[in-house]
Amino acid sequence: MASARTRKFYAHEPGSPGWQVPATGAARFTWDYADGRERLLALYQKGKDKQWDAVTRIDWDLPVDPYDPLGVSDEHLPVHDTPYWHRMNERNKRELRRNYAAWQFSQFLHGEQGAMVCAARIVESVPDLDAKFYSATQTMDEARHTELFSRFLREKLGVGYPVDDNLRSLLDDTLRDSRWDMPYLGMQVLIEGLALAAFGMLRDSTSKPLPKQILAYVMQDEARHVAFGRMALRDYYRQLSQAELREREEFVIEGCYLMRDRLRGEIVLTDLGIPAKEAAELSEHSDNLKLFRKLLFSRIVPCVKDIGLWGERLQRAYVDLGVLELGDSSLDRLMAQDEELAEQLDAQRFAREEAARRAEVAAVIEAGGAAENETAEEVEKADGGSPGEG
């Protein structure tokens, strides 16, 4: 069982302190150390250049109100303006804001640990050295993301939620498969697409500087990860038979329906005493969930099409989901925007810090000048008050 400290942190009993997924497949070594694919090596270089420290790049001194951590309108809450909402006192509403944010960021945390494990599995199992190089940098990225989401939950919110059963199921399916490309497909395409949708929605809606920093900087890394998955899978899937491609398309279809239908966070509502069926209905019909689903598929559908998984059954599933037209969206443009927003945030922060530093220096100089003038005046008075001396 989990330790007393861990049980105290979680809103629900997390069960055992760990989770074991039986690993299958081979660890692959290559003795070909010649130059690899130019684009992938360039991405590897970028991955090295863009490493950063979650301790120093994030301004952890920024205050966060745990009962309004994101500063978004209450209209985003699925229970808003319902009889349940009107019966809540202010304390209940404060707890709801806190717990809903805690549930979201907890799933980010668990997903990032899953991404770290998947990236490490890719290092182990992918046959090409250039892909091993890049996925090693991604493993470090995901470790950093796990670190910072854990810190935000513990230091700023003080509560967390166990991994959602449906996210756990998707991670389990991704990690159990013995084929080396499945961690790519499950993680780089589906789970990263899920994360980017949720990150982007909160990054663009929060009015609080600390969560905005965290989400913007994480998304800057994720833009590279999606590019990596696209490059590697596009090359590999050109070599597969139609039967092999259909197997992967089935995995994508199941994952897309799972993410659309079941990742809703109604556990936060049932904690308030709302019956499970009503909690599910409230979550299902919330405007926030509708927006999330639209953003979710804006990342996944064009990526799936780009890597070559676009069979008839998959297209029919996307028609059913109402997202087929997103296959023509520009994923490159979305990824570029994610990187640009993080760089703009850095520039704004550095400009403010530089302005504050200059103001501090100017104040010190002014204070020093005033002290010199005061000393000079005192000397002058002393000299003037002792005529004829010397």
Rank of each mutant, 00 (worst) to 15 (best):
Y33H: 12
L185Y: 06
D165M: 01
P66K: 09
L109F: 05
E312G: 01
L295G: 02
R28P: 04
I274Y: 04
D181V: 15
L70W: 00
V218Y: 02
P275K: 12
E142R: 02
T137V: 09
R57A: 01
P69F: 06
L129T: 01
R154E: 13
Q220V: 03
D235G: 08
G25F: 11
R230M: 15
A197T: 06
F292A: 13
N288W: 03
D235V: 10
E372T: 11
F228T: 02
Q113V: 00
R28S: 05
V379R: 14
A42I: 05
A355T: 11
V301C: 02
V55F: 15
S150R: 06
I274C: 05
T139Y: 03
R97I: 09
D74K: 06
H285L: 11
D32L: 01
E192H: 08
V364C: 01
P302M: 03
D338F: 13
R238K: 15
L258I: 02
L296V: 04
D61G: 10
D181W: 15
G308W: 04
R260E: 05
V189Y: 03
G111T: 02
S329R: 08
G200I: 05
T270Y: 07
G15Q: 10
A27H: 11
D141F: 00
D128F: 14
M1P: 10
A197P: 14
I214P: 00
V226R: 09
Y236W: 09
D141G: 01
E377H: 14
F251N: 04
P302K: 05
A23C: 09
D35S: 14
D338N: 12
E340Y: 10
E75H: 02
D261E: 14
Y184F: 15
E343S: 06
L341T: 12
L190I: 12
A2K: 03
L295D: 10
S106K: 00
S178P: 14
Q337A: 08
H80K: 06
Y134N: 10
R91D: 04
P211E: 00
Q213I: 10
A347R: 12
P17N: 08
A317R: 05
R316F: 01
L282T: 11
R248E: 09
